[in-house]
Amino acid sequence: MKRFFRSAGYRWFLLACAYVVVAAAVMNGFYTKWRLNDGRPALGLSLMVEGTAHRPYVYRQFVPALANGIQALLPQATVARLSERLSEPRRVDSRSGLAMRYPGSEALVPAVTLRYHLVYYLTFLALLAALFVMRRLCLKAGADAAASTAAPAILALMLPFFLTEGGYFYDFVELMFMMSAALLALGASRQTPVRLLLLVSLAGLATWNKEAFFFFTAALYPLLRRNFSRVQAAGLVAVLLFVCGSVYLALRMRYALNPGSTVDYQLWDNLRYYLDPGNWLRTESTYGVLLPRGFGIVSVLAVVGIAINGWPRLPQALRRHAQLALAINVPLFVLFCSPGEMRNLSMLYPSLLCLLALALAKWLAPQTEVRPDSGLEVR
């Protein structure tokens, strides 16, 4: 019995339990704050799964397409029976339903309810998978096991704070894809063709989830350079860009007649917002508590401190990746993102994760000091 509880399998079981709890807490923090944009005329979940949402939201079709596909595989009678049960009005006050004391929830609409629940739980699974991917990425970055285990949980718990001015199910799927892409690129080489094929396939799926991945692929170049020449790494990035561009073009053609626009120009709104000191001190309810917003002086101080402590330990390839991701993401953020939407700095998530893991490794390491009078080390 002791051997079982000391085994690696049991430790993985405990890790899985811990990450399930973290993912569930994060999903609850997100869902109670934004739900699945129920009832919003431009991007409600019912519009997303039907493909009638406004552009650019309608382009984010990966999870809705999965939900539609799963429902299509089920017999009509099964769909009808499940939809009837899931849309019962009593579920407004039930702890087993997603309406959660919200009578206007689209989870209660019979035509949508099954796909609503599928989207929710597919998002949860993507977040859970992202935690394990992030742990592996931290280990590749050089952090120890303890820091590599804690950093993904901490970053995930921070996500609802970053979902300011908007929060969407595809943000969590994007996290999984970006972390997976960074991990695959770090280990890719001519001796790992399967890894390269997975990276190319992932690029297409990630763009289907959110078109911003097209720009993130360029930031993978420094990671690919670890095991490839300049020409080979640039060629791989070109292939990734081609795949992403092809998927995005197909989405634009498919939804060309939907209302809305591809992008909104936000430069002047952003300048006015960030130059107003009051916006750096605003609060909002996250996890049911009134706390500082994701964009503000508190988050800036936290990120700067993490970067200062983690940067000296960050491997060169990841440093260059962070610099390139910053150079790509910040101009896009200022030009096209709504003011204060920290979630749109998502290209920096892998860098923030690695910096956090390395900073934690530094802070958790035994500190040694020498007493001047004795010369003895004190731990």
Rank of each mutant, 00 (worst) to 15 (best):
N37M: 12
Q76N: 09
R371V: 11
A67G: 09
V370Q: 12
L36T: 03
A181C: 11
Y57F: 15
H321I: 05
L118S: 05
M158P: 00
D171H: 09
L249S: 09
L82F: 12
L98S: 04
L157G: 09
G296Q: 00
V237Q: 03
A23I: 12
V243Y: 04
R319L: 07
F161G: 00
A359C: 13
L159F: 11
D276S: 14
G305E: 04
S261Q: 14
V370T: 13
R252M: 11
R85F: 14
M178A: 10
A53M: 08
V247Q: 03
S189P: 13
L348P: 01
V239T: 07
T207V: 15
S7E: 04
A234H: 02
L301I: 13
C138D: 06
S261P: 04
R60V: 02
A233C: 11
L281W: 12
F295T: 00
L155P: 01
G305M: 05
M100L: 15
F242E: 05
R225D: 04
L224P: 02
F216N: 03
V194I: 15
P160T: 00
A80K: 12
L36N: 01
Y248N: 04
Y274S: 03
G260F: 02
K362G: 15
Y102K: 06
F214Y: 11
A77P: 00
L202K: 06
P259K: 04
W280F: 07
L108P: 01
L236A: 09
E174Y: 05
Y287E: 03
F295A: 00
W363F: 15
A322D: 10
Y116S: 02
S374P: 03
R101A: 11
L127Y: 00
A141V: 08
T164K: 04
G260T: 08
L47E: 09
G235F: 10
R3A: 15
V247M: 04
G142T: 09
F5V: 07
Y116W: 13
L15A: 14
L184N: 02
G29F: 05
R101H: 09
L281N: 06
L108T: 02
Q61L: 14
L376F: 11
G310Q: 03
T217L: 13
M1E: 11
L163V: 02
S7Q: 05
A233T: 07
A322G: 05
A203T: 15
L202E: 05
R190Q: 12
V22Y: 01
L356A: 06
C354M: 14
Q76F: 10
L332Q: 08
M342N: 05
